[in-house]
Amino acid sequence: MQVLTPLLLACVLCGVRGVIRTPLEAFRPSAEIHFRRPDKLPLLPHRRTTAPPKSGLKILYQTGGSEEDLPDCRPRQVCSKVDLYDAAQPWIEKKCRCLGHRPCSSELSTDDNHTLADKTTLYKTCEPVKRLPKCRYFKDAAWVIYTFPDSNATQQIVNCHCPKLSVTYLLKKLPYVTPSGEQGNQYQFACSPQSVS
């Protein structure tokens, strides 16, 4: 039995490496989330690659290994996410490339007018967020996340911004067919007033 234990442990650890295609936001408690169309993502195998740290930040790319490998952003798409869960080691996931050679903001603050924020994540957009309409509680989908199982990538489109002191929650999950004919999901998030404890 002592000889089998390390072998069993190695088998269990190898099996844990499965890929989760559902966006992380769908699993977070709704109190942690504050904000959130598929057509033009390349059908490349999905691999998150890491770039050398830029000013202490780890940079991951949703597809490929550099800005040039990323697809062009659609209107109101989140171009990058800055994860602040570990304040000592924040990291950025680049999702798409802004048109017109404009850089997607990598600021660790919300002062750049291109940021929607929750407790641990900053969502950066190519367009100024001040141009977004204000969401109505429980009615509007603040943002929608589309999954692409063929490339294991996601697209997050922002429709409106939640009022101050509100949170987003998963409103509904709907299936759809991707441009390549695969079955994907869209996750719609709506705004709710923050509950007072």
Rank of each mutant, 00 (worst) to 15 (best):
K134A: 08
P149R: 07
F148M: 07
T154R: 05
V129S: 05
F138A: 04
L116F: 06
K130V: 05
D150G: 03
T147F: 10
V144S: 06
L122N: 06
N159S: 13
K130G: 09
C126F: 08
K130I: 02
P149Y: 10
P128M: 01
R131S: 14
E127I: 00
A117N: 11
S151E: 04
K119N: 14
W143Q: 07
W143M: 12
L116Y: 06
P133N: 11
D140K: 09
I157H: 03
N159K: 10
K139E: 13
W143C: 13
D111T: 10
L132N: 06
S151G: 07
K124Q: 09
A141R: 03
D140I: 06
T110I: 14
I157L: 13
V129Q: 05
C160I: 06
N159D: 03
A153D: 10
N159W: 08
Y137F: 15
D112P: 00
H114S: 09
Q155I: 02
T125Q: 09
A142S: 12
T154K: 08
A117G: 11
V144T: 15
D118T: 02
N113A: 12
L122F: 15
P149I: 08
L132S: 05
D150E: 15
P128G: 13
T125Y: 01
K130W: 05
I157A: 01
T125A: 06
Q156C: 09
P133W: 11
V158I: 15
N152H: 13
N113W: 02
S151C: 13
T154S: 13
S109Q: 10
L122G: 00
Q155L: 12
P133V: 06
Q156N: 10
F138L: 12
E127F: 00
N159Y: 14
T115G: 03
K130D: 14
T154A: 11
T125K: 01
A141T: 02
T110G: 09
Q155W: 01
P133Q: 11
T121H: 13
K139S: 12
I145K: 03
C126P: 01
V129I: 15
T147K: 03
P128F: 01
K119G: 11
P149K: 09
R131E: 13
Q155T: 03
P149V: 07
T120H: 15
P149H: 07
K134F: 06
T147Q: 04
C135Q: 06
C135P: 07
Y146M: 04
T147D: 03
T147E: 06
C135E: 04
T115P: 02
C160T: 03
K139W: 10
Q155K: 05
A117L: 10
D118K: 06
N159F: 14
V158S: 02
K130S: 15
P128K: 11
F148R: 08
C135H: 08
Y137K: 09
Q155Y: 01
A117D: 13
F148C: 06
K139A: 11
L132K: 04
Y146N: 00
V158M: 12
K124R: 12
L132H: 07
Y123K: 08
K130Y: 11
L116S: 04
